[in-house]
Design a protein around this nucleic acid. Structure first.
Lengths: 203, 203, 203, 203
DNA sequence: AATGAATGAGCCTTCATTCAT
DNA sequence: CATGAATGAAGGCTCATTCAT
């Protein structure tokens, strides 16, 4: 990319980042068109290429930006004092919701990166998302699995909870604007239910 | 579509249906290319258009075929005697796994239809999937929610279980061939865990 | 490239080859546009890519075709009995003029290849033209330099004659159709003059 | 163009003229890019357009400047006392070599103008080069063709010598900087040879 | 005056669709 | 019925040109 991008007014930077992020997050790499971004961000076609060389470069930049921003916020929010499984995951989603105030499609972009499989950019995408996944695992390592009911297998819990969050998130983006508050309250509701079912004695 | 399609040898019909289904299920409507189908099914490009007019027509046909076939099988397998939540859902997945012996990508196609959002075909896709969703709801109506622990809300359970199945399914299609047996055994494992956690007294 | 190109009717093959050759020879690689070829050959844009993958592939094919064809003809026409410098060079130009009956821009294409310097294809172009240059040198090795006047240096003669031919050729392509007969008669005229001036005793 | 260009410091004027001339001479009108000129001259993109309106205007200016400068120098160097064919042509090339000390690409630019055939500017280019061609012819009119061997036709000599010079010049610009001394000595060598072959009694 | 960010028309390339065989 | 050659609209990308600073 062209580092002069960062010399632009923060406002314009964010308009471009948000435009690209929205289209990439909603459509995936291949179906995301520069024309869409032009419409969404109100920035001419040529400019994207002026700063990011090509579509892959733009995707890489947005992906990187998204994860770096999230990880920075997580570094602040994920104090090691948190040891409860659901508390940790909630904090993570809370952080994402926080970011969505500036970058509304960031939470969806993170997820889109995990789902992305276009051969032109899979490799780089995977490498970009890695640090985030590590951070999550690291945070969850503070959780004492002994708290889980004997019927509950940790790996299966991860999957169930992970896909449930994904489902809630997708739903939250379905119709119109993403509402962080509503999203979090729904997450919380699910987590309450789950705490009552998977912990050894209902908490 | 052109009804003469059904005059073809069943074998060729299935080769075409499977080819289209595979590409649509794996890539989604827009990214599914006719060239891919030609390669996968070994049937010339012109023939698809001869029978199905255009890509949208082909998608509609395959979507319709898939759901109709599934619903027919469900009509047989979902006897009203089944009343347990997880038994019912398991029977549904078992039915899909059965279908996968003839149409390996049918289970993924059903899911792809639920996720599809290409404006050219969303509407019709939604209408095609509807009968299946109704059948599922109908079957689940035999379940007595009183069996659920007081902490568990039915709508939330639906979502959690639904997305968990989706996750397991996606994983099952990730690497190579779909293995129905393995898929079902994994589903069963999750369902066992869930039964132990969401029912009023662990069954 | 796609070898099925050779299954096309010879007529169409030649229409495409001639179209591409004309545009490449007249404009050079970079400025040659597919739209021009579409107009000149009356063949749709997509078809060029169907057979030749991309512009570089098309150029490479035409370049290769041109040189191979020329070298085949030269192998016939350049009998080793020819030992006179100008006879040899005349035979070469005569051969090119012969080819121009089927591929009118082949003589200009050969020259364009020598002048080409677009970085995307210089290397491959150079390697394609090589066998022709070798064949010319080989043929000229039969010439006895002792026939040259003491004032004439062979390397300088090569250059003078070479650039003169190039000049005559360029002129021949300037206005309208290339006329092989006229071209050859002009070459001959120059060669007569030169024989009278560079040989030891005016022949 | 904007006449205020001449209010700039001579140094900057020449930096811009040389930058444009270099890129135009090496690549031709169409392939000459403003970005290249920016890099070569270290002058911002906007400024070129500020003074020359558009690319065609810039080309026209440089072409005009080049020829006018050359003709002024020729007016000095081509004293009517010179009557030998090769002496006259040598003086012309010597003059070009002299100019190359200030405008290194001027000799190549003159030639590029003769070769230029981009429809957007052919006409104007042709009209700009005209005065130079006339001056050359005028100077050569002092030559007594009676000095030529009976085998040598004047028009053919012109062409042969002209294209030979062009070839030497192209070679001189091939690798790195243009070296006027080397260029002239090579020209001289060829001219010596030619004098010995085309004059009635070897001088 | 001078800069370089910003624009959009144009070219290469892909792919659904048509059609001659 | 079957084939795949042929087409052209649409998307990625380049570059002359404009314009706010």
């Amino acid at each position: 990319m062209n580092d002069k991008f960062f010399d632009l007014k923060k406002e314009k930077q964010d308009k471009m980042i948000n435009g690209a992020m929205q289209v990439f997050a909603l459509k995936g790499y291949k179906l995301a068109s520069t024309d869409d971004m032009v419409k969404v961000a109100g920035v001419s076609k040529g400019l994207w290429f002026h700063y990011f060389v090509n579509k892959a470069g733009l995707y890489t930049f947005v992906a990187d930006y998204c994860v770096k921003y999230l990880n920075m916020e997580l570094a602040v929010n994920l104090s090691s004092s948190k040891t409860d499984y659901f508390d940790i995951l909630y904090t993570i989603e809370e952080t994402k919701a926080g970011i969505s105030k500036i970058y509304p499609y960031a939470p969806l972009m993170i997820q889109a990166m995990e789902d992305e499989n276009d051969e032109e950019i899979v490799e780089v995408t995977r490498s970009k998302i890695e640090p985030y996944l590590e951070k999550v695992n690291e945070a969850l390592s503070a959780f004492d699995e002994g708290k889980l009911s004997k019927h509950v297998k940790r790996s299966m819990l991860d999957m169930t909870v992970g896909y449930t969050i994904k489902g809630i998130r997708e739903k939250a983006y379905k119709n119109g604007e993403f509402d962080g508050e509503k999203y979090l309250s729904e997450i919380k509701e699910y987590f309450e239910m789950m705490k009552n079912t998977v912990y050894v004695d209902g908490e």
